[in-house]
Amino acid sequence: MRKVSVNNMSSYQESDTNGAENSTQLTIEVVAENALLLSWQAKISLTQHNKIITLQAMIVQQLGELIIETVASYHCLMVYFSPQLSTSTQMIDKINSIAKNHHASLEIDKGDTPKVKSLHGDCIKIPVYYDTEQEWDLADVAKRCNMSMDDVIKQHSAETYHGYALGFTPGFCYLASLPESLHLPRKSSPRLKVPQGAIAIAEQQSAIYPIESPGGWHIIGQTPLPMYESKNGQFNTTINVGQNVQFYAITKAEFIAIQQGLQT
């Protein structure tokens, strides 16, 4: 039997002055007639992610109408292009040359420092009513993590999170990283209805459900804030990829007051 080999890959080794240990490999793969997938090391890293979204902005700016869409995630960037205007081989060359300049223009990073400033300005503060009354998962999470519900609340709201990707449903932003003491696998069977504004956790991540939908993450609270607004045919998400996010605890009365304030 013949091992299949198809030439659809391109790799570019970014050599760092710190030597091989810190080097990051960018791989560009043709994944469809109209899409390239750029991938880096499979890890959740703020430094790496900031590089990805800086490169994303450069690609969009420099390749203009060739680009239909770009979607960033933890360690990948999907680039959709118009196959009528460019072949995938030409696109790979163009992106490789932007990546080389991009790398040269970046400061040499000194490993992953969690306090790296967000590229997108201010930290967004999200009020959360950590709900103990409803039959959600706060008590279960506390039990499984071997701590009190208050500790779950304290730990969840002490962290500064970073928006790594938008997806799943419109406005759903994947936030990381959750403190290790709260890491739990997804629920074995997903809930059919997760309410709008639900604050949920799974593995290293936390997120807010923008609309009622099915979901397999553990719900520990709810925010009265909307996760998107739409005006004049535009859709703006409350949390963008690359932004920092913090949660703070509010009471049920405050939750209701904010909700009513938004309605008037």
Binding site: A32, I44, S73, Y74, M78, F168
Partner: peptide, 28 residues
């Protein structure tokens, strides 16, 4: 890790029963 997905990708979950992503796929 979750990553962006596109039209026609053949996902291969643990049970090895492929899922081909069609037009109304999610983005991740």
């Amino acid at each position: 890790l979750s990553m962006p997905v596109t039209y026609g990708m053949v996902q291969f979950p643990d049970n090895e029963q492929p899922i081909i992503l069609m037009k109304e796929r999610q983005t991740m």
